[in-house]
Design a protein around this nucleic acid. Sequence first.
DNA 1: CGATTATTTGATTTCGGTCAAAGTAAGTGG
DNA 2: CCACTTACTTTGACCGAAATCAAATAATCG
Lengths: 240, 240
Amino acid sequence: MREDIHTTGIPVLCASCEARHRGICGALGPDQLLALSKSTMRHKADAGKELVSDSRSVERFSNVLSGVVKLTKTLSDGRQQIVGLQFAPDFLGRPFQAESSLTAEAATEVELCSFPRQALERLMKEQPDLEHRLLEQKLRELDQARDWMVALGRKTAAEKIASFLLMIARNIDPGAGPERRRAAFELPLSRAEIADFLGLTIETVSRQITRLRGESVIRIENNRHVIVDDIGRLAARAGD
Amino acid sequence: MREDIHTTGIPVLCASCEARHRGICGALGPDQLLALSKSTMRHKADAGKELVSDSRSVERFSNVLSGVVKLTKTLSDGRQQIVGLQFAPDFLGRPFQAESSLTAEAATEVELCSFPRQALERLMKEQPDLEHRLLEQKLRELDQARDWMVALGRKTAAEKIASFLLMIARNIDPGAGPERRRAAFELPLSRAEIADFLGLTIETVSRQITRLRGESVIRIENNRHVIVDDIGRLAARAGD
DNA sequence: CGATTATTTGATTTCGGTCAAAGTAAGTGG
DNA sequence: CCACTTACTTTGACCGAAATCAAATAATCG
């Protein structure tokens, strides 16, 4: 009984896994999970670890179980742009041949559950719902990418920073309901990385954060810990 | 025999259709094409015609048969950003509920082949390869969106214009093989639209185009017709 | 605790934006 | 066919937001 998702017969590792609830593994039945889990590897990576190299073809895909992964593109002269951030339980990987290359790197300490590309492709054939979930994940990534295109092309530095903090708050703060007044979280990116995400320089990022702090829209402790007392006030500065 | 794509038993409209060769309809057999063609509408739209409204939920999807469609996002104060351009035989539509809204508009005169959302969703269930094609289309759009994020965030105005002309040349100029020396095409966008695509102003777009013309990297006739004598020279200015 | 790295702050420059005007093209109706 | 309107594009002068250059301060780590 594929449709019936219980914990009976499910691999121990999968039992409490986010990817089985909101991620792509939700498409799989106990027997399929069991089959997949045979070629599955769960592992941690430290912040900064390169997960998917630009050049090398990728032979393993992953689910992000915790932490944040950044997807980066680099121009020949070294200019960088972060083109996506992935949070649990996102799927990490580009099935079929990509027409543009990118690097995936752990932005924070990251927990991954990885499996061979072949295993996924085999399962997709026998369980079309898996491909469906993958499509939905990629559609979500596309929506996000387009939202950031607006920020990159048309928002001011101040608006970019506000939008960024808002996005992080919504993704990281556990159980971030649609409308909640307060939020507090650990920034997953350094100032340099935020700059690479927003198409700014480190200095501009720093100045704008200082400005938000000066207007007490946010409070910051230890450089990385951000507290937003009134999300609405932050959202009002995001520009959309 | 689904795999065997002949013209026998195929609806007349589909027989010579690009979407059946490189688009999503390639996943369908004669019987399925016939079924789909019953609820299919082929129609033209003039440049400027709004195809998919921001607010209204979309009840029809389309294949682009000719022309160029632009996907736009607008901030509350009117600032606009074009987040995608679609050429034949791209699929136009966002299956399943979108988490971000956008407007689709004919950039040039456009020919579409549209069908009800329901018809597509029904067919996807009986023919998983259709969903597979859709996934591949959306992955391509995602790759493109990310390429433009790099341009928007990290390229100079001059590089943005060069990248844009290059992208148009590759998509519009019929039979644009990977490496060809010359290219000539009609710009599908006005200066204002190019500005909205590249996150620039009309004036900057105009000045950069003038500059490229001054350095005879491109020639322009009648404001819209562009001739590139040496694509390599243009590519050298794109920055990647 | 010293060394290294990350962040903030300040002074100055610059690229692209804004404002303004002139040049061009494309209709439209007399 | 031509004046006239309207919309689009180019060009110029000037301005300003963010970049660059430079230094100080704070955090992190062995």
